[in-house]
Design a protein around this nucleic acid. Sequence first.
DNA 1: TAGATTGTTAATCGATTAACAATC
DNA 2: TAGATTGTTAATCGATTAACAATC
Lengths: 222, 222
Amino acid sequence: MAKVKISAAPSIRRLPSYLHIIRRLQGEGNTFISGTVIAQELNLEPIQVRKDLSITGIIGRPKKGYPIQALIEAIEHFLGWDSPHDAVLVGAGSLGTALLGYGEFRYHGLRIVAAFDKNPQKIGSDIHGVTVFDNVNMEERIRSLEVTTAILTVPSVHAQETAGILVRAGIRGIWNFTNVKLKVPERVVVQKEDLSSGYAMFCVMLHAKKLEEDGRHGAGQD
Amino acid sequence: MAKVKISAAPSIRRLPSYLHIIRRLQGEGNTFISGTVIAQELNLEPIQVRKDLSITGIIGRPKKGYPIQALIEAIEHFLGWDSPHDAVLVGAGSLGTALLGYGEFRYHGLRIVAAFDKNPQKIGSDIHGVTVFDNVNMEERIRSLEVTTAILTVPSVHAQETAGILVRAGIRGIWNFTNVKLKVPERVVVQKEDLSSGYAMFCVMLHAKKLEEDGRHGAGQD
DNA sequence: TAGATTGTTAATCGATTAACAATC
DNA sequence: TAGATTGTTAATCGATTAACAATC
């Protein structure tokens, strides 16, 4: 359910890092940037960068590279980051608070217009400029805000129940920071952000590197 | 630099979600679990679950499935989550604080033994049971702690500089939560956790879903 | 101009999925 | 026993990489 098939997902995931590099190089006064340079910065193959950028529709110039301003606009437009995007955040715990304070979001057009929590001490307060509301009236309040995207940072035990309320409130996209696989209707998109999968990779890489080093030392090879 | 080639990376990334489901089902009193059931819970293909689990070395039983306890142990062992793993956290801002309070880490064997920050108001304080030290003495302190893994949650502008200190302190693995591509020696492993790539996917999925729906309504198809 | 860099087309590589015999 | 489920081998699919003509 709620499975949107996206082709070129790995390319899409790399676009923000390109955007980051490109912005930095623009700040240094460049007006053109080549795929080769981006690739060097990110330790990727130039051909991969060119392929990835092509999905945004940008056209580069042989010998010169890509016009930086147009490239930034192309990536931002492709990602929908060139227009503001309102969202609510549900669960103003430590992770929710961290996301409320994450300045980077402004670059991505993301505006968190309200937060919800059930902790009476937080209700009515202001976290990084966002008001925290009681989650008892959440459904009605979200409806009146006419927001269709939610960031879910409640404790895992409340994730599914909260998602149900969000769906009833008209939410069509949930950025899910809990480790629960949400059950939602077909029309709702869920993007699950998973710290533990990254940590799993980290652990396996550390282990592999350790074996590699031990092997090197043990056998005295180079 | 610092590029560890890991085969079956997508499989490794899915293991933690399997572990989560399996633990839940064990809590419900099951002793065996089939790949089919795991697949259903996560909206995956059974064959994919079986393939993924096979990398841990677990052997299932036709008709019954996998013995739950052995399966949990196999996954945890494969990931190195069956033995404690010490780390320091650098940058006790909002994200750092959130990670210090992230209870899930205990399931993964991760123990954060010290935090570092440059804010005098935080130095000496205790965040979720972890002491915050002055980052001026960080190099020496990390050495004396004999920790080789670090979680990097400083502001992006300080990321590279901080990584340099960590490397000098003997750190061999950096779990990088900044949006900076770190330059580190070959021997150091970096796992970059990237919120914006997840958000990029989310935005594109929302857009694709919207087009899908609009098309449906516009043409009146099913 | 010469050479760096593009975009395209084809080849390779790896991950997912399908098919199916083995089996408790 | 019959049927569900496993592990293996092969086929498909998609992503990455290579090759190269076009070009500013």
